[in-house]
Each structure stands twice: as C-alpha cells, then as structure tokens.
Computed example of a mutant assay.
Amino acid sequence: MRVPVLTYHSNNVSGNDYASNDHVALAQDLRRVARLGLRIVPLATVVDVLLGDAPASTVERAVALSFDDGSWFDWHDIDHPTWGPQRGFAGILRDFAAETGAAAHATSFVIVSPEARATLDRTCLAGRGWWGDEWWRAAQAEGLLAIESHSWDHNHPTLPRAAQDRSGTFRTIDSYGEADAQIRQAADWLDAFLAPRRSRLFAFPYGETNDYLLRDYLPLRAGEHRLRAAFGTEPAPVTRGSDRWNLPRYIAGAHWNEPAGLERLLASIG
C-alpha cells in the first residue's frame, strides 16, 4: 500500500498558469494521472484499506484527491475579479470523467463554522459571499465530492475570535476543551447538516498539530469525535505504517509546482 494523496486549494488563484492557479494544475494533473495508468479512488477508501476494512488491491496503482477550505471555488464556476472565469473543481472532475470515462472523486475538507466562513470571505477572498455551504448537500448527493471537516474555524489568524482564546495556529489546540471545540463541534455540525451522512475524516489546518492531538485527544476520544482518521501535510504516500491520526498528503504548489514535478513525485512512489 503506497497511495499518494494529492491536495489542492481552490482559493489559490493568483494567475492563470500551472504554478499560480490550482484549477489549471488540477485539470492538467488529472489527465497526467490517467496517462500514467493510475486510478483515482475516494480518500475514504484509502482509510478503509489502512484500517483493514478493504483489501489492498482496492488501492493498487491509485491516487486520492483532497481539497482544502471548502469555498465556492470547489463547486461553482466563478468569474474571478482579477483573473477572469475559473472552472470550479467539481466541474474539472466532471470534465475529466466525461473525457476519459475514468472515475473521478475528491474529498473537500471544509471550514465548518458559518460565522468564520463569512469573515474569511471578506479577509481571504473578495467579500462576495463565496464561502457558503448551500452546495454541500448537492455535492454529497451527486457523489463527486465528499464533505469532511477542516475544523470548526481553522483557528485562522484573521478571525476576531476563534473557538478558543488563542488564535493563529492549530498547534495551540492542546487541551480537551479547545480540541473539542474545533474537532467534535465541527463533526456534530456536519452530521446534523448532512444527515444521515456522517463525518469521518479530518484535515489539520496547514497540517499543524501537536502531541496532545495526536497521542491523546484523537486516539483516546474517538468515541466522542467519531473520526476514523486525520490528515496532515507530510509529503509521503499513505502506507501500512502511516500514523492514522496524521496521514501524509502532497500539497500542490508546496510539494510540486510544475507538471514534471508531479511526474517525478509519482515515479518516486512507484
């Protein structure tokens, strides 16, 4: 079992070429993955194999996809105020499936708090209401994108108040109350919003974590938060030996920023 998880941020639009636009990169990378003879499998399937609930053959010669933050750019086609029309990530997946006949699926790790998203829309996007959650049920129903948790409010530095007193980095989430506010509260909200579907995966904001989350809260409070696994940002494939509570992912732009870089990355995994 050696499965690379390729991660993209739909908010990353600072130009219209591969290195400056994750929409351009995703569209090209999907076809590159297909040309290399690799399949795209749901991230939940990778976790099933890791935990022994599915055979390893399920993820043989496969990659998985994840998207972080969960803005409208994951789902909608949007006319960017600076860089013009952008095909949403969901549309890019549909285009790929229609063109190749191959399965396409990704997991969107979303910031759950409506209040936090409303603020982040102003501080991190264009302030046009592009961080709503009205598309999440449609995404789940179509089966193209799985909606999972990227925490309650990302503990983002631009928020006036986070779920706890200390803001700016997820490394400071090191007590039961803070962890519960960020992780279980997000799972509870998603479970109610997307019922009967249940949230089971988590991605650390910026990949930031600490010993309390990895060795205490996540493994010892599983009956409360109900998660099956969590993902970080270590650049490595998911293997049988990977830490269930800090699974690795490759981040577009950070771990490769050109088509040849992705090919080298995938070749190195084998």
Rank of each mutant, 00 (worst) to 15 (best):
residue 116 A to L: 11
residue 119 T to P: 00
residue 182 Q to M: 02
residue 65 L to F: 07
residue 79 D to K: 11
residue 187 A to G: 00
residue 43 L to Q: 03
residue 203 A to T: 10
residue 75 W to S: 03
residue 77 D to T: 11
residue 232 G to A: 01
residue 265 L to G: 02
residue 86 Q to A: 07
residue 214 L to K: 09
residue 243 D to F: 03
residue 76 H to Y: 12
residue 95 D to Q: 14
residue 52 G to E: 04
residue 99 E to Q: 15
residue 269 I to S: 06
residue 8 Y to S: 00
residue 87 R to P: 03
residue 212 Y to C: 06
residue 65 L to H: 00
residue 90 A to S: 15
residue 252 A to C: 11
residue 33 V to Y: 10
residue 68 D to T: 08
residue 230 A to G: 08
residue 139 A to M: 15
residue 106 A to I: 08
residue 133 D to E: 12
residue 137 R to T: 06
residue 204 F to M: 03
residue 148 E to V: 05
residue 78 I to S: 03
residue 72 W to F: 08
residue 237 P to T: 11
residue 221 R to M: 13
residue 174 D to F: 01
residue 244 R to F: 06
residue 79 D to W: 05
residue 240 R to H: 14
residue 168 G to W: 14
residue 225 H to A: 07
residue 186 A to V: 07
residue 83 W to H: 15
residue 205 P to R: 02
residue 62 A to R: 05
residue 168 G to L: 13
residue 76 H to M: 02
residue 205 P to D: 01
residue 35 R to D: 14
residue 220 L to M: 11
residue 84 G to V: 13
residue 39 R to V: 01
residue 118 A to N: 01
residue 73 F to G: 04
residue 55 P to L: 05
residue 15 G to M: 08
residue 156 H to G: 13
residue 230 A to I: 07
residue 249 R to H: 06
residue 27 A to C: 09
residue 49 V to K: 11
residue 142 E to S: 12
residue 150 H to A: 06
residue 120 L to H: 11
residue 250 Y to A: 00
residue 155 N to M: 13
residue 84 G to Q: 07
residue 184 R to H: 14
residue 255 H to C: 01
residue 90 A to N: 02
residue 103 A to T: 13
residue 159 L to V: 12
residue 267 A to K: 01
residue 1 M to I: 15
residue 116 A to Y: 12
residue 132 G to C: 03
residue 136 W to A: 04
residue 251 I to W: 00
residue 99 E to W: 10
residue 76 H to T: 01
residue 166 R to L: 09
residue 127 G to D: 11
residue 79 D to S: 13
residue 228 R to E: 14
residue 127 G to I: 12
residue 212 Y to N: 04
residue 178 E to F: 02
residue 156 H to M: 09
residue 202 F to P: 10
residue 151 S to L: 09
residue 124 C to H: 13
residue 242 S to V: 04
residue 130 W to E: 14
residue 187 A to F: 03
residue 89 F to P: 01
residue 165 D to W: 04
residue 211 D to I: 08
residue 183 I to Q: 06
residue 45 T to F: 02
residue 112 V to M: 01
residue 240 R to Q: 14
residue 213 L to K: 12
residue 172 T to I: 14
residue 229 A to C: 03
residue 218 L to C: 12
residue 219 P to R: 12
residue 249 R to W: 05
residue 25 A to T: 05
residue 122 R to E: 15
residue 62 A to H: 04
residue 47 V to D: 11
residue 11 N to K: 07
residue 139 A to W: 05
residue 188 D to K: 00
residue 258 E to V: 05
residue 252 A to R: 06
residue 223 G to S: 09
residue 82 T to F: 05
residue 169 T to I: 08
residue 60 E to M: 05
residue 37 G to H: 10
residue 43 L to D: 00
residue 54 A to H: 13
residue 33 V to D: 04
residue 69 D to M: 06
residue 73 F to H: 09
residue 41 V to M: 02
residue 130 W to M: 07
residue 28 Q to F: 09
residue 51 L to R: 11
